[in-house]
Simulated scan of single mutants.
Amino acid sequence: MHASPPSPAAPSEQPGPAPEQPGSSAAQPAAPEQPEAILPPRPGPRSALLAGGMLATSLLLAGLVVLPAPYAVQMPGPTADVLGEQNGTPLITIKGATTYPTTGQLRLTTVSATGTPGFPSSVANVVRAWLSRSDLVVPTEELVPPGQTQQQLNDLNNQEMTSSQENATVAALTELGYTVPATLTVAGTTGGTDAAGKLKAGDVLTAIDGTKLGDYQALVTTLGKVKPGATITLGITRGGTGMDVPVVTGTRSDGSGALIGVFIDPTFTFPIDVKIQIDGIGGPSAGMMFALGIVDRLTPADETNGQRIAGTGTIDVTGAVGPIGGIRQKMAGALRDGATWFLAPKANCGDVTGHVPAGLRVVAVATLHDAVAAVTAIGKGTGSSLPTCG
Score class of each variant (00 low, 15 high):
residue 265 D to S: 15
residue 220 V to F: 14
residue 40 P to L: 13
residue 72 A to Q: 00
residue 10 A to S: 14
residue 339 A to N: 01
residue 317 V to S: 13
residue 21 Q to G: 10
residue 164 S to L: 10
residue 250 G to H: 07
residue 27 A to M: 08
residue 10 A to W: 06
residue 328 R to G: 08
residue 41 P to S: 15
residue 78 P to V: 14
residue 11 P to Q: 09
residue 231 T to V: 12
residue 226 V to I: 06
residue 210 G to E: 07
residue 177 G to T: 02
residue 81 D to L: 09
residue 158 N to G: 14
residue 311 G to H: 08
residue 258 A to F: 06
residue 53 G to Q: 07
residue 323 P to G: 04
residue 236 I to M: 14
residue 9 A to C: 12
residue 305 N to D: 14
residue 162 T to Q: 12
residue 163 S to K: 15
residue 181 P to M: 07
residue 116 T to S: 03
residue 306 G to I: 02
residue 219 L to S: 04
residue 242 G to R: 11
residue 168 A to S: 12
residue 195 A to L: 10
residue 368 L to P: 02
residue 8 P to N: 10
residue 116 T to P: 00
residue 326 G to H: 03
residue 259 L to V: 15
residue 238 R to T: 03
residue 237 T to E: 15
residue 106 L to W: 10
residue 107 R to S: 15
residue 65 V to P: 00
residue 130 W to F: 15
residue 99 T to K: 06
residue 347 A to N: 06
residue 215 D to R: 01
residue 222 T to F: 08
residue 4 S to G: 07
residue 210 G to Y: 13
residue 305 N to S: 14
residue 52 G to C: 09
residue 164 S to V: 12
residue 45 P to T: 08
residue 53 G to I: 07
residue 336 R to Q: 09
residue 297 R to A: 13
residue 66 V to M: 02
residue 106 L to S: 12
residue 384 S to F: 10
residue 312 T to F: 09
residue 230 A to H: 05
residue 54 M to Q: 09
residue 209 D to A: 04
residue 228 P to Y: 06
residue 27 A to W: 03
residue 144 V to G: 00
residue 361 R to V: 00
residue 221 T to F: 10
residue 285 S to V: 03
residue 62 A to V: 15
residue 68 P to M: 01
residue 373 A to W: 01
residue 160 E to R: 13
residue 157 N to H: 08
residue 3 A to L: 13
residue 329 Q to F: 09
residue 147 G to I: 05
residue 80 A to Y: 15
residue 290 F to T: 03
residue 236 I to H: 13
residue 37 A to Q: 09
residue 64 L to E: 03
residue 345 P to N: 07
residue 167 N to A: 15
residue 162 T to Y: 10
residue 232 I to R: 04
residue 144 V to M: 02
residue 8 P to A: 14
residue 229 G to V: 11
residue 268 F to R: 02
residue 265 D to Y: 12
residue 319 G to I: 02
residue 129 A to D: 07
residue 375 V to C: 05
residue 165 Q to C: 03
residue 147 G to Q: 04
residue 382 T to V: 09
residue 290 F to D: 02
residue 77 G to I: 10
residue 161 M to D: 02
residue 140 T to H: 00
residue 73 V to Q: 00
